[in-house]
Design a protein around this nucleic acid. Structure first.
Lengths: 207, 207
DNA sequence: ACAACTCGGTTATGTTTTTAACTGAGTAAC
DNA sequence: GTTACTCAGTTAAAAACATAACCGAGTTGT
């Protein structure tokens, strides 16, 4: 797995992704051509497209490591743990570690990256596509735990929307100027409430 | 001349040469294999031999930039200047700039490189071969100035031996602990004397 | 004396990359 | 409305590369 070939491939991927994000943040997505990115990463244009299928994917590669994470968490959970509990626990650990996927990371470059992704229509669209695939693969992982196709897809979709709303909530609070450590308690409480709803299904009175 | 291709080629050359010299200085020429050098430069062994014909050439590449320099100096001299005067002037400028080829550079890494070259028989032999080629090309340049084959070869050979003795003299003085600025005056005087002998041919009384 | 190993150097093969040219869509100029 | 330009994405051919295998000479250990 680790020869010179794969080592240099990974370096080229990273160089392209890093150069692209840096340029997009500095000058704006539309004011940077793929030729600029290739030049900054010191590769040719065909090589760029051998690593990434589109200009948008250059940006999403940084987040793509986390795609498939939910499915993996479910598959690798302790035998006596429910899938939802494992996902809940994993999200809480993400909050503690200020993982960017939870929306609770106030590092300036992460916030800038966030804005880049969601303020650029093409990228946001592509992100939703990838998120849909991620949700589908979580659905498969869940089907291994309880072989009910429809229910697996339902739970996967609910997890996806829960995670997205929680992250968006946290990100909005950070965008208003508060710090991650300041927001953390209410983020944890919100996660507990959301995952509790997902697990026990009991919506509060009035719903 | 300057595409991505040549840029990366030059980088690989430099990486190989630098890695080799660093390893040879740290562990000794014989205690480092070409595989070690290739690994340190992050290329494969066949690639190493595509850039350098032998293990010894890895070391001499650093000095190889200066090969052909004498011929170039002669070709590019001012029209009213004799070849020997141009070479003399160039050597004096080298002394002023503490150029490694003059032997008057007391930078520790340069001294260590010097020892590596001359204390390793294989490298020293190869250096003499390359120096011989350098002398031959100087001979051709001289022949353009005064089309006498034998005389051109004679003057080229004399220049080569003059340069070598002057450099060896300077290097020996530095090796005994003195600084380059301390040695510089006598080095300049010695160069004047040597090139004067070469130009006017008048050996002092007693020879 | 023999087997196992190391090292400098080489070769065959498939993969990756550069280069230069191209397509097709959009856009600004006139 | 036509010309000229820019950009994302593609293609073909040649250069460079990694990998794994090999050769021959020299060492070491037994």
């Amino acid at each position: 797995m680790s020869g010179l070939r794969d080592l240099k491939k990974e370096r080229t991927r990273q160089a392209l992704s890093d150069a692209a994000i840096a340029l997009f943040l500095a000058r704006g997505f539309d004011r940077v051509s793929v030729a600029d990115v290739a030049a900054a990463a010191e590769v040719s244009k065909p090589t760029l497209f051998r690593y990434f299928d589109s200009k948008e994917d250059l940006v999403l590669h940084r987040a793509a490591d986390h795609f498939g994470e939910a499915a993996r968490v479910v598959r690798d959970r302790a035998p006596d743990q429910t899938p939802i509990s494992a996902l809940h626990q994993h999200f809480q650990r993400g909050l503690d570690e200020r993982a960017p996927t939870t929306g609770l990371c106030d590092a300036p470059d992460v916030l800038a990256y966030h804005r880049l992704v969601f303020d650029t229509p093409g990228i946001a669209v592509r992100l939703r596509e990838l998120t849909a695939e991620d949700t589908a693969s979580l659905g498969e992982a869940l089907r291994a735990a309880a072989p009910d196709d429809l229910m697996s897809r339902l739970v996967a979709a609910q997890y996806a929307v829960v995670r997205e709303i929680l992250a968006r909530e946290n990100w909005a609070k950070l965008a208003s100027g508060r710090t991650a450590t300041d927001v953390h308690p209410e983020a944890a409480a919100a996660a507990d409430a959301a995952f509790g709803l997902l697990a026990r299904g009991g919506a509060p009175h009035g719903y």
